[in-house]
């Protein structure tokens, strides 16, 4: 029995030494940068790949390993990060962000992978920057002079009016058409389809709920006949015949989030605002580009990440 107590005592001493060492190590490392925690929802594949790639990028951007917390169903992010102290937290996706925003946290919070821009919060939206899209349009089809956009009267995830100013600075004429509902939008698109030509383009905005399959089909069929360009913020539209679209470069998005976190850790002054997504991939429909007479030269291919082959 006595032997047992001695062994237990010895183990306790060893454990203490280990804990002290670990604390010292933690203290030493935290003197440089505090650990970074990335919390994201637990989803099935292939959806999980998106969050995993962002976390991989965050690790690179931050320059040191990050703790990854997958938020299981029914769990709360607040409980998860309560185990940590002083760490910087990157919350990805709607559920973790919703749970953590507005809570009294001991952790600096950075948000990412959400489609809305929240005032007063540091982070990155997943909505591609309009300038990033339109720059690709100018590379692929330099002959296009006009961009037509159908905007919701109640607004959109993109501030179209602000985008117009930016895009016109690039030398393009941006025409904004307003629509109140899907019927209204259908009329606007139909009217555009009848009148546009090879110098024109239609930009389908991110999350545009006006453009259902029937409307998209009508628009793309008209663009095939009249040779105007349709580009979209929804990559699936490219499969269906839109010329091109953009989608997030998840890894680079993660790198940028990691850099924002690093800046925060180093105490750099950063405006508490969400940046638009500029790191995007471009996908092009080969059949449509052939039809429009666009040769995908090496110069153009430098701006293209994925060509969806003709059928």
């Amino acid at each position: 029995m006595k032997g047992g107590i001695e062994i237990k005592g010895l183990m306790t001493t060893q454990l203490s030494i280990v804990l002290v060492c670990a604390s010292l190590w933690c203290a030493l490392t935290s003197a440089e940068t505090p650990p970074l925690v990335v919390v994201y929802p637990e989803v099935r594949q292939p959806f999980a790949q998106v969050y995993q790639a962002i976390a991989d990028g965050a690790e690179q951007g931050y320059g040191s390993p990050v703790h990854r917390l997958e938020l299981a169903n029914g769990r709360n992010s607040v409980d998860l990060i309560d185990r940590y102290e002083n760490e910087i937290v990157i919350a990805l996706g709607r559920r973790p962000v919703k749970q953590l925003l507005g809570k009294q946290l001991n952790h600096p919070l950075i948000v990412g992978a959400i489609s809305v821009s929240i005032d007063g919060v540091l982070g990155l939206t997943i909505v591609p920057d309009p300038e990033a899209i339109v720059q690709r349009l100018q590379v692929l089809v330099p002959s296009v002079k006009n961009i037509y956009v159908v905007d919701h009267l109640k607004g959109n995830v993109i501030n179209v009016a602000a985008a117009k100013v930016t895009l016109e600075a690039l030398g393009l004429n941006v025409v904004i058409k307003q629509a109140a509902d899907i019927r209204d939008a259908a009329n606007v698109y139909r009217e555009l389809a009848e009148h546009l030509d090879a110098e024109d383009s239609v930009w389908i905005l991110p999350g545009d709920r006006f453009v259902n399959n029937a409307l998209l089909s009508m628009l793309l069929e008209a663009s095939w006949k009249s040779d105007f360009v349709v580009f979209s913020s929804n990559p699936t539209h490219v499969k269906r015949g839109a010329l091109f679209s953009v989608y997030p470069d998840n890894f680079k998005m993660g790198v940028r989030l990691g850099e924002i976190a690093l800046g925060r850790a180093q105490g750099n002054e950063q405006p508490a605002a969400m940046e638009p997504l500029t790191n995007v991939f471009v996908t092009v429909n080969e059949r449509t580009s052939n039809h429009l007479g666009i040769t995908l030269t090496d110069d153009k291919m430098d701006y293209i990440d994925l060509v969806l082959p003709a059928r």
Partner: peptide, 23 residues
Amino acid sequence: DFNADELDVLQLYGDEDFITIAT
């Protein structure tokens, strides 16, 4: 719960097939 989080990702890519290609 699964739905909401997956739908968010889906909105960016359009459909599940495209996610496997994009990733």
